[in-house]
Amino acid sequence: MPMPYYVSPEQLMRDKADYARKGIARGKSVIALEYSDGILFMAENTSATLHKISEIYDRIAFAGVGKFNEFEQLRIGGIRLVDMKGYAYSREDVTAKSLANAYSQTLGNIFTSEVKPYECEILVGAVGEETASNELFHILYDGSVSDRTGWVAMGGASDQLNEYLENHYTKDYPKSVPDLKASVAMGHDALKTVEERDLTAEGLEVAILDRARARRKFRRLPAADLTKLL
């Protein structure tokens, strides 16, 4: 029986990470911005049915970049997890933190124990009573989580988008955050600048977690509403 070649763990992890990063870099990007009444999610997406951004629970939304089937699986898994938790206990017991934790465990396990890591990054956002209590968890392909404030960009052009938003997003967070119109414009400009072409409302997928709404805070902004805002 032939012996397999020895590969050092460092090399193995590096190869997997490179593989996952390359897969993610091929895809489109998603950005999230905290605005005065909640959180705005924006992605370049020509499909009206294959969403990158979706509702998870009353206050929680999900965004994914990379391989669609992989983050879609995580999205549905997340909905199952929180719906069961909310049903067994109460709706208030469902938190973004515990969901982000579950995602992190899953992605971490896949990254270390499976041959092929997931080529996706996800974002779990939850709108709070005020801007300071909003939550944004960015979870990478290897399960590492970061707790972000103000804005998050991920996907193919995340480096350039992060740089753009770093320069344009308010430095006075959380005291003065842009309103919806201003943040839609900022997101749109960021994507346009990075992609170096014009993006119409039809080519964008935009959704908000609006704290003014009743129980379910998530709402998609259809192209008609978006055109008015742009």
Partner: peptide, 26 residues
Amino acid sequence: IDSLRLPVNGPGSSFSELLEARKPDL
């Protein structure tokens, strides 16, 4: 093993089938 990963023959989009599979006591 991991509730976030979906078995292909799982409960689909029905919540009651999901409970039946995972938490029938509920």
